Computed example of a mutant assay.
Amino acid sequence: MESLTRTLPASWFCSPALYQLERRAVFLKSWHFLGPVTRFQKRGEQLKYEIAQVTVIVENTSPEKEGIDVDGITVCAEDEGVKIKSRLTPSGLLFVALSLEAPDFEDFFEGLEELTNKVDFTKLPHRRSISYEGRFNWKTMIDGYQECLHCQYTHPTFSKFYPPTFYSVTNHKNFSQHIADPSKKSDGLFLYFFPICTLNVYGGGMTSFRTLPSANPGISRMEFDYYHEGSDEEFEEYFKFVRQVAIEDFELCEKAQENLERGVYGEGILNPVKENGVRFYQQRVKELVYRQHALEKAAKDEKSNTVQVHAEMDGGSKVIAVQ
């Protein structure tokens, strides 16, 4: 049993101090998926995205006559003068980094474009977006997405089309691919982008969501975008189907967070096969947080040592103020 991976402790889902460390370690140093280029088809419309208390503005400035011109998508931070890095993949997917500390896109998502370039994401028009808060930590929702052990009893409608018997997760560098049914490779692309974004192509349409953290670790904001090229009636049928799955997950997450905060659940052992997706992302969070903590501690120790040296050189006759 010692060789099996344990989950993150409940404190990682409830502690404000740990979230602030996550913010610096994970969110400010990652790339975040905003949507396919069709999300930004309206000229002059500024779309705002708030991720980990950083607001990003996206606008399509290309001439109307040129259709959806990928070169016309501009991305900036709301704070004036702050540079921001963005990436529009050849297949039409827009990603953004919240700070210059994020690595290069190709390094962060190594091998991702090889997979996404097989799909033309410029074809499905944006149909609807919704947003609302949930009483759960961002990791509580990602826990549920990254495994399908709960699918059979929580998502009976989804399981009818994509039996959990075949469900598997393949983890790559900062992203995961979910295979719902090997016999339906043309209808079922499920991608998780570390840390909080997903892209799901199934049932004739496409949906993505972001689980956006707040300063209160027990609260997240869910943002969903829906894409479909069918008639209004066909879209509403698709929307009803995918919303049912989302509502089922939402209710499960709120109950799970409640148990975490009450101390009903502390930590446990992850199934090495059925929960390898959870293990992958949680270990990534843990690795980055530990690294950030070590960096900040080293910087603090170095500053303290420098102050001490100056004090000793000065004979201790002056009080040294540390800002």
Rank of each mutant, 00 (worst) to 15 (best):
residue 50 E to Q: 14
residue 118 K to C: 11
residue 107 D to F: 14
residue 124 L to G: 00
residue 72 G to R: 06
residue 38 T to H: 01
residue 109 F to W: 05
residue 74 T to W: 06
residue 56 V to T: 03
residue 66 E to L: 14
residue 114 E to L: 06
residue 128 R to W: 10
residue 59 E to C: 08
residue 135 R to M: 12
residue 89 T to I: 05
residue 128 R to K: 14
residue 81 G to L: 09
residue 71 D to C: 12
residue 127 R to S: 00
residue 99 S to N: 06
residue 102 A to D: 02
residue 33 F to A: 00
residue 51 I to Y: 10
residue 143 D to I: 07
residue 103 P to K: 08
residue 51 I to G: 10
residue 91 S to A: 15
residue 50 E to C: 12
residue 148 C to Y: 03
residue 70 V to S: 13
residue 151 C to I: 03
residue 46 Q to D: 14
residue 34 L to T: 00
residue 68 I to V: 15
residue 104 D to W: 12
residue 142 I to T: 10
residue 33 F to S: 00
residue 63 P to A: 00
residue 138 W to N: 00
residue 94 L to R: 01
residue 142 I to Q: 11
residue 101 E to A: 15
residue 90 P to C: 06
residue 55 T to P: 07
residue 127 R to E: 00
residue 121 F to I: 06
residue 111 G to S: 05
residue 146 Q to M: 13
residue 67 G to S: 10
residue 123 K to W: 04
residue 87 R to V: 09
residue 127 R to D: 01
residue 66 E to Q: 12
residue 126 H to F: 15
residue 78 E to V: 10
residue 98 L to K: 02
residue 84 I to Q: 12
residue 87 R to K: 15
residue 77 A to M: 14
residue 130 I to N: 14
residue 75 V to R: 00
residue 99 S to R: 05
residue 122 T to F: 02
residue 109 F to V: 06
residue 87 R to C: 09
residue 143 D to A: 09
residue 86 S to M: 11
residue 111 G to I: 01
residue 125 P to Y: 01
residue 144 G to I: 01
residue 91 S to Y: 10
residue 73 I to A: 02
residue 35 G to F: 02
residue 93 L to G: 05
residue 32 H to N: 07
residue 57 I to T: 10
residue 104 D to G: 09
residue 82 V to Q: 14
residue 95 F to G: 00
residue 72 G to D: 11
residue 137 N to T: 05
residue 124 L to I: 09
residue 89 T to W: 04
residue 72 G to Y: 07
residue 114 E to F: 04
residue 131 S to Q: 15
residue 128 R to Y: 12
residue 130 I to G: 11
residue 46 Q to E: 14
residue 74 T to E: 14
residue 40 F to W: 10
residue 73 I to M: 07
residue 150 H to E: 10
residue 32 H to T: 08
residue 109 F to I: 06
residue 37 V to M: 05
residue 139 K to N: 07
residue 131 S to R: 15
residue 48 K to Q: 15
residue 113 E to M: 12
residue 130 I to Y: 14
residue 127 R to I: 02
